[in-house]
Design a protein around this nucleic acid. Structure first.
Length: 739
DNA sequence: AGGACGGTAGTTTTT
DNA sequence: CTACCGTCCT
């Protein structure tokens, strides 16, 4: 492909970004401005115009999805020209480097990667061994602290101890790391950390990679943490050809260690950086962009961007103020139905976003009631399922018998009468001798001849030895069988199927999940166990969720990043929800909440619906709310307020705490009775024994119809699917005949 | 080893 | 309010 063809569909800013010279480049790309487009065209430009060999290019992303997308799009531009390129997520690139450079590390090349659950179990064990009170210091909070320290590349001994808790974290951190190393395991953070340290401390390794990667490209740069930034700095140290793309305004992972100040650091560390702004937006209407800009402009430490579009101003932003959160969810459901039925929106073009997962519940209820299809993003994870983890743990154990976390997971699953006491005794004994439980287990296979036999409990030792010989056998088979056959053999040996597949539907599902793992294993026959386990650990299941274009998407604002929808609803734009109550006392966190709102707004192509409720279900009863402070920043003339409640006297967004106490009193009056002016009871549109027709379920008989909460609720027995409860206003039923 | 009870916490989650 | 975890009891 020649340069002309490559550039023909780009705007001037994009052309500049794609064709700029070598050296450090910082592309700040507003939402919808063609960030991925620029990155992929730049890669194609490097290879086909500048003649760079793919082997000398490194491209890193945060998600597998992004990596796949970029790969696909570059191949589209320059087919068959990517041989030798290294492209992948930070974690997978690091995993590869570490496998290759294991000789420099405290682990061997067949190390396993621990996920959150595994990490937590190591922390728990460490906490117990150190006699720390789990009530006072929750393992999950300690783990969180450890993770942040690792992201910042701080070793236990480098910590500043400001509180007793810091001291606890320090001790656990130290122990935790020892356990990981002795298990020949790394956690997600270690992948980055080990690589960053390796490049920092081993000049010959650093030079090798820094020379190879003549050009480095980074996606979503604003989300890098210190470890990632450090490793990039070292990798780019030789050639300085580092091309980073990002947007400070979309940095929403501070709590995971991401530090958008890396954008500022970048300019300082790489003098002569070419900085390019992409400000033309191809996604949203000008109204949406103006609202977004009004919200984000109040943040500091950012490069101001003037997003513009050629799409025209479009519709106003809808703001709906509901009485309570239930009504708010019903409103959204109803509006979504309207968009689909009246405005011919595809359900898949509609998304509902919220701050916390818990908020999805009322929405789901409303959708179920209205018989509307929806899909929930990020609810249940395939790899998080118990049976999947069990099966993987078996495989990991055979791959790396030092892995005590996996051993502990499977040694009594299915039950082998090896209880906690026996296992603890085994591990303690092993640690005293400075070896792993697996080592002892395998030695016990010799029976009473084993030097360790007498140190185990009488009852437990035989059962341990039994499991040991199983493990021994599998280890011997490992070299001869394929992954699939080995896995099948193991599952048969332990009668795993009988264990999980009971008569229930759930049992069937579970076995189905196991079969899915087997199927995945089959795909890795050629690449081997290392690659298979690595991909299980590092490849999320984002794309194992089937696409459902006929359903409305419900997702958190975080999960919405990088996506776009024709119509976007943002649910719960109230103080303490967005911004979240936990962020209120920290200005940095408030800025991040603001970015989160910004990300949500800028997902919308045509229609944006913001909603809030004057009463919201707290932990106990109902709480009164204040409108989100972010709403105040959106100019009134961009909004169309659609709420139907209370006075709009104060500022038009529903109650606002100008005179809070008085307001509250007033609201309580409002609450009881709930409808001071009783809503007119709508008349029943459907009666029992009426033949009706539904757009998707066909015909059925009305069994009963009544008014609930001011809505007509109809029970219909459909010929196709049986009994359904529907809202008359939304279901779109037509009467066929009356009996 | 599994069920019942009680206490406690209750954001976001690319890998 | 509920969902989850740990503990205790059978």
């Amino acid at each position: 492909m020649n340069a002309m063809d490559l550039l023909k569909d780009l705007n001037p800013q994009q052309v500049k970004a794609v064709t700029t010279g070598t050296g450090p480049v910082l592309v700040l790309a507003g939402p919808g401005s063609g960030k991925t487009r620029v990155l992929t065209h730049r890669m194609a430009y490097l290879i086909s115009v500048m003649g760079i060999r793919p082997y000398n290019i490194l491209t890193v992303t945060f998600t597998n999805k992004a990596a796949r997308e970029i790969d696909k799009r570059v191949r589209n531009l320059i087919p068959n020209d990517l041989q030798g390129i290294l492209m992948g997520t930070f974690h997978s690139v690091c995993a590869r480097i570490l496998r290759y450079e294991a000789a420099h590390l405290p682990i061997t090349a067949n190390y396993v990667i621990y996920d959150d659950d595994d990490q937590l179990s190591v922390v728990k064990r460490s906490v117990r061994e150190l006699n720390i009170d789990e009530k006072l210091y929750k393992p999950s909070s300690i783990l969180n602290a450890i993770s942040l320290l690792k992201n910042d590349m701080i070793r236990p001994e480098q910590m500043t101890i400001k509180s007793y808790k810091d001291g606890v974290v320090q001790k656990v951190f130290d122990r935790y790391q020892q356990v990981l190393i002795s298990n020949n395991a790394v956690d997600f953070d270690d992948l980055l950390l080990y690589t960053a340290r390796l490049l920092e401390e081993a000049p010959e390794v650093r030079e090798k990679y820094a020379r190879r990667f003549e050009h480095i490209l980074v996606d979503e740069f604003q989300d890098t943490n210190i470890a990632q930034y450090t490793l990039l700095r070292h990798l780019a140290g030789e050639n300085h050809n580092i091309y980073v793309v990002g947007d400070e305004d979309q940095s929403i992972y501070r709590w995971r260690g991401a530090d958008y100040h890396n954008v500022e650091r970048f300019e300082a560390d790489f003098p002569g950086t070419t900085k390019i702004l992409l400000e033309q937006n191809y996604r949203s209407t000008q109204t949406v962009l103006d609202a977004a800009r009004a919200v984000i402009d109040r943040n500091r430490h950012r490069t101001p961007k003037a997003l513009f579009t050629e799409r025209g101003s479009g519709e106003k932003v809808h703001l709906y103020v509901a009485r309570d959160d239930r009504q708010e969810s019903e409103y959204i459901c109803q509006k979504a139905a309207e968009l689909i039925n009246k405005l011919r929106f595809k359900a898949g073009e509609i998304a509902i976003m919220y701050r916390t997962n818990a908020q999805s519940r009322l929405l789901e209820e409303a959708f179920i009631k209205a018989a509307m299809k929806y899909k929930l993003v990020g609810a249940q994870r395939f790899y998080g399922r118990r049976e999947v983890k069990d099966v993987i743990a078996y495989l990991r154990l055979v791959h790396n018998p030092s892995d005590e976390v996996s051993l502990a997971r499977v040694i009594n699953v299915p039950q082998r009468k090896i209880g906690d006491t026996t296992l603890q005794a085994l591990m303690e004994y092993a640690h005293q001798l400075g070896v792993n439980a697996g080592t002892i287990l395998l030695d016990l296979v010799q029976g009473p001849a084993s030097a360790h036999w007498q140190y185990m409990s009488k009852g437990g030792v035989n059962r341990l030895a039994d499991f040991g010989s199983r493990l021994q056998e599998w280890l011997e088979l490992k070299g001869t069988l394929t992954i699939t056959s080995l896995l099948q053999k193991m599952l048969e040996d332990v009668e795993y199927r009988q264990y999980i597949e009971d008569e229930t539907e759930e049992g069937q599902d579970r076995w189905g999940n196991v079969e899915e793992v087997l199927r995945l294993a089959y795909e890795y026959e050629q690449q081997g166990m290392d690659a298979f386990l690595e991909s299980l650990a590092l490849v999320g299941d984002q794309d194992t969720i089937p696409d459902a274009p006929e359903a409305v998407t419900m997702l958190t604002l975080h999960a919405a990043k990088g996506l776009e929808f024709g119509a976007v609803f943002i649910y719960g734009v109230d103080e303490k929800v967005l911004p979240h109550s936990r962020s209120l006392d920290d200005p940095e966190e408030l800025e991040e909440e603001r970015r989160l709102f910004y990300v949500g707004i800028t997902r919308a192509k045509d229609q944006l619906y913001l909603s809030r409720a004057e009463f919201r279900g707290g932990y106990g009863g109902m709480d009164t709310t204040d409108p989100s402070r972010f709403l105040e920043d959106i100019p009134r003339d961009l909004l169309k307020v659609e709420g139907q409640h209370r006075s709009y006297s104060s500022n038009g967004y529903g109650s606002y705490s100008r005179s809070n106490r008085q307001e509250k009193q007033e609201q309580y009056i409002w609450k009881s009775p709930p409808n001071t002016v009783p809503l007119k009871q709508p008349e029943l549109r459907y009666k029992a024994n009426t033949r009706v027709s539904h757009p998707s379920w066909g015909e059925g008989w009305v069994l009963e119809s009544r008014i609930m909460d001011g809505d007509e609720v109809v029970d219909v027995s459909f010929d196709s699917i049986g009994l359904k409860r529907l809202l008359a206003n939304l279901a779109g039923l037509t009467v066929i005949e009356k009996k």
